[in-house]
């Protein structure tokens, strides 16, 4: 079954959607959109470092994304004016990554594969990494669901219930770094944040509980992945951007339908 590249690509997209659905919901609820962007952009620096030091790309991405996420989350707790700081970090990380990659000796690196993903080239090994990473993220979020949700609703209420909001924020930070590392091959650094935000935002309109929104976001993410792949196969458009375009179309439709 996994012999067909298109089947593998489909499984990769759906696997990613399982992680981005619930995590993306938290990104929307907590207004962490730019935070997701900064972490994702740092991934390209991770790619460069991984190539330079000859370690697996996923590992390098995970480490650098985690470092970036921790820095940003640390700044957020100290109450810095986040907008400009995040902009500086996000774009500097991207630029620094692109510069660093030009120093990688030997092989010419296919930059666009890292920027926009290369879902049609996903192999069995990649599929294992994607589903493994998604499983870890889902398990992490299910395990911490109630305290995470309470802390998102109100930090005051969370503390009074004996929940440490900083610890819960760390869980999200870790989950975000894992998703970035896993999504690199599927969707690329530039569009990871889109896969987090768009399906969740599309699910908001018709969801009455947080659980319904997270599950719907998974469905919308998976549908976008399959629709984008289909379009890419039929009309020969780039796969990653097609997936995000499909998600945007679904968002536009749900926004129009649920608008009062």
């Amino acid at each position: 079954m996994f012999d067909d590249f298109l089947v593998r690509a489909g499984f990769a997209g759906v696997g990613l959607a399982f992680a981005t659905g619930p995590l993306g919901s938290f990104v929307v609820w907590r207004r962490m959109a730019y935070f997701g962007d900064a972490t994702a952009h740092a991934a390209i620096l991770g790619v460069a470092l991984a190539l330079i030091f000859s370690v697996p790309v996923t590992l390098g991405t995970l480490a650098v994304a985690l470092a970036m996420a921790l820095v940003v989350s640390g700044l957020a707790t100290r109450g810095h004016a986040m907008d400009a700081t995040l902009g500086v970090l996000s774009h500097s990380a991207l630029a620094l990554g692109l510069v660093a990659i030009s120093f990688v000796p030997g092989v010419r690196v296919d930059l666009s594969a890292f920027l926009f993903g290369d879902i049609l080239a996903v192999g069995r090994q990649d599929l294992l990494v994607i589903w493994g990473g998604a499983a870890v993220v889902v398990a992490l979020l299910v395990w911490r669901w109630a305290p995470l949700l309470t802390a998102t609703m109100s930090e005051d209420l969370a503390v009074a219930s004996g929940i440490d909001p900083r610890r819960e924020r760390l869980v999200l930070t870790l989950a975000l770094a894992i998703v970035v590392a896993v999504a690199l091959k599927v969707i690329g650094t530039l569009l990871i944040a889109a896969m987090l935000i768009i399906p969740a935002a599309a699910a908001r309109g018709f969801s009455r509980t947080p659980e319904a929104m997270a599950v719907s976001a998974v469905g919308i993410g998976a549908a976008s992945a399959l629709a984008g792949l289909g379009a890419s196969y039929l009309v020969d458009t780039p796969a990653g951007p097609s997936i995000v375009t499909a998600a945007a179309v679904i968002f536009a439709i749900t926004a129009a339908v649920t608008r009062r």
Partner: peptide, 27 residues
Amino acid sequence: RLGYVPQKLALERSLPMTVARFLNLPE
């Protein structure tokens, strides 16, 4: 066992939450 009623909730509109779900949070 401490019951705490804050001055008010700063609610985020993007987070759907019914009264029934809220009463069951975190337990």
